[in-house]
Design a protein around this nucleic acid. Structure first.
Lengths: 313, 313
DNA sequence: TCTTGCTTGTCAACTTTTTGTTCAAATTTT
DNA sequence: AAAATTTGAACAAAAAGTTGACAAGCAAGA
């Protein structure tokens, strides 16, 4: 549950506007504390983000404020708002993932996209990332390591999911004053799925993301961050858990970057490099929730790297 | 239901014109809000788009405004072949490419997307591929080789262009009985831009494409082609012009594939491997036009590989 | 050729509606 | 005590509505 200030920051709307939209159009109707403060849920935040994106692209708030959230997503993903698919049966979450894996095995792009789209309508942007895409990415990584699927399958899945997530996050990419973030994987890390997810998550969280893709040397990551005046660099580290080069790369990255630029590292293998990461003052993101929290910290300026955090949270 | 502004944007007409067409010819008669604002339905939007297209191709609005929507569609499908593009201000094609290169240098995603989208509106799907994206990809490759841009720039450009082309080709991906095509780059070829372009071009040309991404060993390309029952495998070969492994990869690919599956190879370095390609009966695509022609050949069954073509065309 | 009238898009003026912001005062949180 | 939140009222800018005028393009007739 979030206060109006947090919601304002995350949606890019002013608190005034959020209140007036509630008063005039009942766009959202948040809970209240015992003392009458507004308390917004995660889905309220998403709804307001969608409304913001929609108004920014020209729709008038009076006409769309009452639309169901699913319609808003549709309105944004394509300007063709037609009848929404009436989902009759909610498919079990595990089944859905298995269906996705099956589609990847069959290299069936249409099917995989259909499954992803359906899940996005059901669970929303945040939900589909946490409940489907992230665990699916882990599955794919595991299956590939076990030799159950080939690199072709992995590439295929990356390509389709990447396209889907780009689409998904597009409506959010509008706030002009949003902080910048560079996303990629360091040299030697060839799996980009984690980075793709991070990019989509950050975009949906109100950041402007420069996505650079997999396997980039430290100097290039750094120069991209400088060029875009980024507040942080987010890296995904998945497969080789014991790459000595990677430690060197990370230290170089830290040395190239100004102190105010944070480094956030996520992915299955991030823990294996805890020593280096600690030394360079990087933050480790465990799961998407944690990633969001770290982004908020960095954004609100609590980002002195190289030192232990000042406020224990 | 849409406000007049949204309709104006989606149809390309000015709000003035929409209102005057309603007043004079009753071209559409939208609903009104309680306060007299116009509210357009999805079919109103389509109708106005059709009217716009029809007037642009020479029909006078007074004569067609009252026609049923189905007639308008017919009218357009007939005269589409004759449509003369009245370009008011053609921004020099080279300038545009330079602007794109500048946006890539700045890692400015918004700007690059804006330029691409604008060009797509001007030149259409086919046109933007041939006139902008393909030469731009060559530029990027050249600049990278000359060390004028870094791998980060190249990745960034790939990511943005990939997203743009996926979007661009989406509306075409509808034919269920279309022939299948696998697109990727062989092992060792790390530049995927050519493959992305090929995938978009083939999709726009009516194929169903399985995009696998860069650097895949022959056995995986082959098994993907088998799995999807593809009629052809399209590969992009750009950078190392003298990779002995690549020759071996290509021969393996041929041996894994059934004879009826064609291999099409494009990209700047394709010519350098002419010997192998000839030996395995692969076709070399020089430019996009040529690629289309080869796709047509394969589709129409003239695809016996390993032999010179039977019908000189 | 010139005039006349019709078609069609654009403009200007003015009104009403929509929508974001500002101000002030009371209450709560830090 | 200072900073936030809530509420209502008022305000100003933007957008949309209507009406009437006007100019360019075109066809037909004097």
């Amino acid at each position: 549950m979030h206060s109006i200030r947090i919601v304002a920051r995350r949606t890019g709307l002013s608190a005034h506007v959020i209140r007036i939209w509630e008063k005039r159009y009942r766009a959202v109707e948040p809970d209240r504390t015992a003392t009458n403060r507004r308390l917004y849920s995660e889905s309220d935040v998403e709804r307001l983000s969608l409304l913001h994106a929609a108004t920014a692209s020209g729709h008038s708030i009076g006409l769309i404020a009452q639309l169901p959230t699913a319609h808003l997503r549709q309105l944004l993903s394509r300007s063709a708002a037609v009848a929404p698919a009436p989902c009759s049966e909610p498919p079990a979450p595990e089944t859905l993932r298995n269906q996705c894996v099956a589609a990847i095995r069959d290299l069936d792009q249409h099917e995989l996209e259909r499954l992803l789209r359906g899940a996005a309508l059901q669970h929303g942007t945040q939900g589909v990332l946490q409940k489907l895409v992230a665990p699916l990415a882990t599955d794919v990584g595991r299956l590939w390591q076990q030799g159950e699927i080939t690199a072709a399958h992995e590439h295929f899945a990356s390509a389709v999911i990447r396209g889907f997530l780009t689409d998904l996050a597009r409506p959010f990419a509008l706030t002009p004053a949003a902080p910048m973030l560079v996303v990629g994987t360091p040299a030697g890390q060839i799996h980009e799925l984690g980075a793709v997810i991070a990019a989509a998550a950050a975009t949906a969280h109100g950041w402007r993301v420069t996505y650079l893709g997999p396997s980039l040397p430290a100097c290039e990551l750094a120069s991209a961050a400088l060029r875009t005046e980024s507040r942080a660099v987010a890296l995904s580290v998945v497969y080789p858990k014991d790459d000595p080069d990677l430690s060197r790369e990370l230290e170089q990255l830290r040395s190239y970057l100004p102190a105010r630029t944070a480094i956030i590292v996520g992915g299955r293998a991030a823990g294996a490099y805890a020593r280096v990461l600690d030394r360079i003052g990087a933050r480790i993101a465990v799961g998407i929730e944690d990633f969001y929290a770290l982004l908020d910290q960095v954004r609100s300026g609590d980002g002195a790297p190289g030192q232990p955090e000042r406020k224990p949270v």
